[in-house]
Design a protein around this nucleic acid. Structure first.
Lengths: 316, 316
DNA sequence: CAGTTTCATAACTTGCCGTTATATAATGAG
DNA sequence: CTCATTATATAACGGCAAGTTATGAAACTG
C-alpha cells in the first residue's frame, strides 16, 4: 500500500502543533480538510493514528512514528522551497559563459571574482572561443552567453547583441619601454621593435593587421604568436616587444604597473565588445543576474575609461 | 508557492532511473502520468527542470537540486512503509501489561525477556496492581492486558478472560529447609515455622488464609509481610520461614535451586491465571503478538509443569 | 535516412482536496 | 452534575489533477 506524503506532512503538523486547528493554520488549510485527510490515512493504514476519544488529539505510537517520517517530508518541502527561491532569484545555478581569451582573461575574469563574492552559489563555467565556435554553442544551448567583439552588421538571425564597451585598441608595451620615455611617439618608430601576434583566427589579429597596414611599413618582426593573455604579458614585460591589445584589457592591468599603452592613437576597430545570447534560450535567473552584473560593471568601467581617456595621459 | 511532494518524488525517480519509462515502472504508474506531472511541476516552478529537446531526459541544475529533495521524500516514504509494516505485524509498538506483582516478577518477566529477544522494537510497559486497580485501567484504555488470577464467575461485563494456567499453590521454603529432609511432611508440622505473608489485599493472601485455615491451627507466626517477590525470596532463602506461592512461580525459580516446594498437597485456589482485556479496546498488532506469545509460553509451561507433577517428586 | 526509442498530447474517468456550514463529543468550571 | 467551551467529525459540493489508453512527434542510433 502506498501512502500519500502529503498525509504524513499533515500528520506531522498535527502532532507537532498539538491540534488540528493550529496545524490547519500552520499548513494554510481548513480544519475539516485535515480531519478528513487523517481519517483517510488511518483507513489506509488500518490502524489508529490517534487515540480515540481524546479531545486534545493524542497520537498513538504508530502515529508518532509516521509523524517522524512526515517531519522528513515537511523539511524536504521547506528546503525545496528555499532552493527554488534561490534559483528564481538567480542566487543559485550555473552560468556558462564563453568569450575570446583576451577579454575573458583580461576583463571578465576579475569581474567574475567580484560576482562570486556576492553569489557564492552560482557556478560559472567559462570557455574560450571565437564567434565561429561560440555562436553554434549559443544556438544549441550549451552556452548561456558569450562576450565577444562584434560588428553589429554581422549579427546572425536569432541572436541578440548588447554592446557593453566601445572598441578601442592600443599598442601595448612594458612599462619601462624605451618608447615611453619620450614625449611623443611617431608611428614609424614602432616598426623597430618585435611584435607579438595574437592567434591568427582571432579578432585581435585582424586589428593588429589593420594597425600595421595603417603604419605603412611592411617590415615587421613577429617575435611571438598564438599565446594566451598571460603568455603575451609575460613576453611583453620581459622584452621590448609590442602588441595590440584592447584598451580595456590594458586598463584592467594598470594596477600591476607592468604594462603600458603607447601614447599613439591608432585606428579603432569596427567591432564593439558586447554580450551575445540566443533569443530562443530563455535565460535562467542566474544568467540574468550575471548579465545584469556584467553590464553594470562595464558601465562603471566605461566611465572610468573615458575619464582617464579625457585626461589623455594616464599611464604610470 | 507550495510544491507537491509527490511531484518531487516523481522528479527524483526520473533523475535516478534516467528516464520516464523506467521511473514509471519504478513508481507503478504510467509514463504519460509522469510526463504531465513533470510539466505541471515545471509550470509551477516557472523554470525548466529538464533541458528541452533532449531525448534521454537530462535534468537542469534546478532539476537536480529539487530531485535531491525528492530523494528525501522518497526515502521518508520508503521508511514509513517499513515502519507501517513493522507495526502491522506487531514487530514494533508498545504493550502495556499489568498484573499481580508475584506473577509478573516470577513468571511473566522472564517470558518478556524471551519476547524482547525476538521483538526488540516492542516496548513493554509493565505495571503492578490487583484486579480492583487493573480493571478500570483496562476499561479506560491505559492498559492493554492484565495477567491476573481470577474466578470465571467474577468477570465483569465487557471483559474477556483467557485462562492460561490452572491455579495451584504450594508451600514454599528454602531448599535446605528442615522439613525437606524427611520423606513426608504432616500439615501440623508447618505451624512451628514463621510465615511470610503477601500484601493483605492480594489474592495470594486469601490463599494463604485458606491454607492456614485448612491446617486448623490458629497459632501462626507472621514474620514478614507485604514484600515483593524478590523480598519474599530473600527472606525465604535466608531463614526457615514458609510461605504460599503459586506453583508456577516456584517452578520458574527451580534452576536457581534456592527455593523448594514442600511435598504437601494443599487446597488449590478457586482462581486461575489468565489474560484479561477489555473487548472495547481493539488490540494493536503488537499486543496481539505479545498475548499470542504469552499463551504459547504458558501452554509450554503447563505441559512441563504437569509432566513434573506426574513425576510427583521434582524438587532438588 | 530509416528504425527505434523516448517523450508529449488527447480525451476521459475517478478520486480526493478544499471550501463552508453544522453536528457531536470531550473537557473544565461552577 | 450540568453547562459552556473548545475540539474534532460530518455533510455537501465544486474543482483540480492523477490515472488510464491510444496516438503523435521528436530525437537518437546505426
Amino acid at each position: 500500500m502506498k501512502l500519500d506524503p502529503r498525509h504524513l506532512e499533515i500528520l506531522f503538523a498535527i502532532v507537532e502543533s498539538g491540534g488540528m486547528g493550529e496545524a490547519a493554520d500552520m499548513l494554510g488549510k481548513s480544519q475539516p480538510s485535515l480531519s478528513r485527510s487523517v481519517s483517510l490515512l488511518e483507513e489506509r493504514v488500518g490502524l489508529p493514528l490517534f487515540e480515540p476519544g481524546r479531545r486534545p488529539l493524542r497520537p498513538t505510537e504508530l502515529g508518532l512514528a509516521l509523524a517522524a517520517e512526515g517531519r522528513k517530508v515537511f523539511q524536504a518541502m521547506r528546503d525545496s522551497g528555499t532552493v527554488l527561491e534561490q534559483f528564481q532569484r538567480g542566487k543559485t545555478g550555473a552560468v556558462r559563459v564563453g568569450g575570446t581569451p583576451v577579454f575573458l582573461d583580461g576583463v571578465i575574469s576579475p569581474m567574475i571574482a567580484d560576482f562570486q563574492a556576492n553569489n557564492p552559489s552560482v557556478r560559472i563555467d567559462q570557455s574560450y572561443g571565437y564567434a565561429a565556435e561560440l555562436l553554434p554553442r549559443l544556438e544549441e544551448g550549451s552556452l548561456d552567453l558569450a562576450v565577444l567583439p562584434m560588428r553589429d552588421a554581422s549579427l546572425p538571425d536569432g541572436f541578440a547583441f548588447q554592446q557593453i564597451l566601445t572598441g578601442r585598441n592600443v599598442i601595448a608595451c612594458r612599462s619601462g619601454h624605451p618608447l615611453m620615455r619620450r614625449g611623443a611617439v611617431k608611428l614609424p618608430e614602432v616598426s623597430k621593435y618585435p611584435w607579438i601576434a595574437p592567434p591568427a583566427n582571432s579578432p585581435l589579429y585582424h586589428d593588429l593587421r589593420a594597425v600595421i597596414e595603417g603604419i605603412g611599413t611592411k617590415d615587421f618582426k613577429i617575435g611571438f604568436s598564438g599565446g594566451s593573455l598571460t603568455a603575451v604579458v609575460s613576453i611583453l614585460t620581459g622584452s621590448d616587444a609590442l602588441t595590440v591589445l584592447p584598451f580595456s584589457v590594458v586598463f584592467m592591468m594598470r594596477h600591476l604597473k607592468t604594462v603600458s599603452a603607447l601614447p599613439i592613437r591608432i585606428g579603432d576597430p569596427d567591432r564593439h565588445l558586447g554580450i551575445l545570447h540566443h533569443i530562443a534560450q530563455s535565460p535562467r535567473p542566474s544568467v540574468e543576474r550575471f548579465t545584469g552584473f556584467l553590464t553594470q560593471e562595464f558601465a562603471s568601467l566605461s566611465t572610468r575609461i573615458t575619464r582617464v581617456g579625457q585626461a589623455s595621459v594616464w599611464l604610470p
